[in-house]
């Protein structure tokens, strides 16, 4: 099972990197979303897959009664999902604003901060 998931993680990364290499901001955004999911799946996989019950301690007990799934990767993934989600939302709004203001979805034409035809630096004092 781990092997299959490892291949899936690899597939996610491949797709994400392909999208991130694109010039279009929307595709890069999709790449960011996919690589985030790939990382989450990776953490889930390296935490060892076990077909166990959810890590919930029953009422009135101090320890789980049977073997439970490893809760730590789940906690890490939950945190990573929350952070990834908020940053993705921010980047989405930013891309939208950039599209409105700069009228560009193509990173090659976004040259306000780094002008393409910037003059040569002064050669003499």
């Amino acid at each position: 099972m781990e092997i299959a998931l490892a291949f899936l993680v690899g597939l996610f990364f491949a797709v994400a990197i392909y999208l991130l290499l694109s010039r279009s901001l929307i595709r890069m955004l999709l790449g960011i979303a996919i690589i985030g999911n790939g990382v989450n799946l990776l953490i889930f996989t390296v935490g060892r897959l076990t077909r166990e019950v959810p890590p919930i301690v029953p009422d009135g007990e101090y320890a789980p009664l049977e073997q439970i799934a490893n809760p730590l990767p789940q906690a890490l993934i939950l945190t990573a999902i929350v952070i990834g989600f908020s940053l993705f939302a921010f980047l989405l709004v930013l891309t939208y604003r950039a599209y409105q203001e700069l009228d560009a979805d193509n990173t090659d034409t976004m040259r306000v901060a780094e002008p393409e035809d910037s003059p040569r630096p002064p050669l003499s004092y």
């Binding site: 901001l25 921010f90 930013l94 891309t95 604003r97 950039a98 203001e101 976004m110």
Partner: peptide
């Protein structure tokens, strides 16, 4: 906005 896209 331009700088923030690249930084972000």
């Amino acid at each position: 906005l331009d700088g923030a896209v690249k930084y972000g």
